Simulated scan of single mutants.
Amino acid sequence: AGRVRLDQGRSATSLVGELYVGHRGDILYPLVVEEAQVGTLAIDQRAGLRPLSLSTRLLLSIAFLSFFPGILTLIIALLLAQRVVVPLAEVITAARAVAAGDLAARVEARGPDDLRDLIEIFNHMASTLEQDAQDRRAMLADIAHELRTPLTIIRGRLEGIIDGVYAADEEHVVPVLEEVYLLERLVEDLRLLTLAETHQLPLTLMPVELADLAARAVRLLEAEALEKGIAISVEVPAQVPLVEADPQRLGQVISNLLSNALRYTPVGSQVVLSIRGKLNGVELAVSDNGPGVPEADLARIFDRFWRQERARTRAAGGAGLGLAIARHLVYVEGGTILAENMV
């Protein structure tokens, strides 16, 4: 064994000058100069493994500590995507579909409470838009139908007069004029209904005596009731409080309700207009002993163009706008209106 000359590249360590004591597993390389061995390079594997083992343990510790937070972060991200990002993306997709005209687009309500509220509001908005679109199409179809009948009569009569089929006398001109009046009333009713629905109807509010207004409406319809064999009357208590309303519009509501009752009440029946004071106002009721309305149709009785007869004839008269106008006129003046069958 020789003496140690260099220890790990240094010449000033405690091992330098001492006899080399080998260890099991040392790697020995002979140092040869001009074919003569001048020394031996000894590699102590233990000295090389110690820093490697330390760094390996350090790296493993860092990797171990980083792995679980990474997995936790990934899981949280996936949960957030499932609960928030995915439903929100569905809302955005559905909103784009609605904007493109697909009003049937809906989103399943899921996720956090705030997101659920957003989805429910969106679905309600889409349902409202879809219902409005359906109502608009139905209204246009109803208007076209209501206009078609009088226009057809007017055209037929006028063409007959021009072709000489009918004489240009009162007998053949009066029906044309009646249809023109009918068209005029229809257009005016539609205009009034539109103004009331959009809250653009001008009102002149003042204290109103309901008893006087009711009595006037009954007097105007007495001749029609007598012609149909129907008794019409008004019941008013001695003291009726004044109401703040537009007398013209409120009178129109009363007239529409009475006209509707006269239209559908059979001969020999009775129509009663009654007024009663209530705790928070005044109740005005129009009642009759007619056949009533099926319970399934009561919710639709104030819809425009709705008539109980499924066939669109004018045998019973009316275009189906009177009660719709009455409802909106009552609403714009801060009142409520309903229909019910009396047992």
Rank of each mutant, 00 (worst) to 15 (best):
P69Q: 07
L15N: 11
S233N: 14
V187R: 09
Q252E: 15
V98M: 02
G281D: 08
Y20Q: 12
E35M: 13
L41V: 09
A214S: 09
I301T: 00
V180D: 04
E130G: 06
G164Q: 00
Y181I: 06
T313M: 07
Q37M: 11
D142T: 04
I119W: 02
G111I: 04
L54K: 13
E227K: 13
D288L: 02
R136C: 04
P207K: 14
I43F: 15
L284F: 03
L15D: 10
E171I: 08
D117T: 15
L250V: 09
I62T: 15
E18H: 12
M125V: 13
D246T: 09
A47P: 03
Y166F: 12
Q248V: 12
R110H: 01
E170I: 02
L242E: 14
I337D: 03
V4F: 06
V253C: 09
P247W: 01
R155D: 06
E209T: 02
L52N: 01
L6W: 15
E188D: 14
L65K: 10
V84M: 04
L193P: 09
E159Q: 13
L298K: 00
S11L: 05
P241N: 07
A319M: 07
A97T: 02
H199C: 05
P291M: 03
V332Y: 06
A319K: 11
A211Y: 07
G292V: 00
E170P: 01
V272F: 02
L118I: 15
L279R: 15
P207H: 08
V187G: 11
S61I: 02
A1K: 12
E209H: 12
D26L: 14
D135Y: 10
I143C: 07
L298S: 01
G335V: 06
T198V: 09
H124K: 13
I71A: 12
E18F: 14
L258C: 10
R300M: 06
R307I: 02
F67E: 09
A316P: 14
Q200K: 12
T73C: 14
K278T: 15
G160V: 03
L158C: 00
P207Q: 13
G251F: 00
A100Y: 01
G39T: 14
D102L: 02
A339L: 05
R3F: 14
D26A: 08
S233G: 15
A12S: 08
A319W: 08
L284Y: 02
G320H: 02
G229N: 04
F64I: 13
T149K: 14
A285N: 06
V91W: 01
P266G: 01
F67G: 04
M125C: 13
E108K: 05
H199G: 14
L190F: 03
R312N: 12
P202E: 03
A63T: 04
T194Y: 10
E130F: 05
A89G: 14
I275E: 03
R276V: 10
Q45S: 07
A42Q: 11
A316H: 13
V173T: 03
L226S: 12
I162N: 03
A126G: 07
I119F: 03
L74Y: 10
R307D: 06
A36W: 06
P87L: 00
T313Q: 09
R96Q: 13
P112G: 07
A238F: 14
G160P: 00
L203Y: 05
G334M: 08
M342G: 08
E178W: 00
L79S: 01
L257M: 09
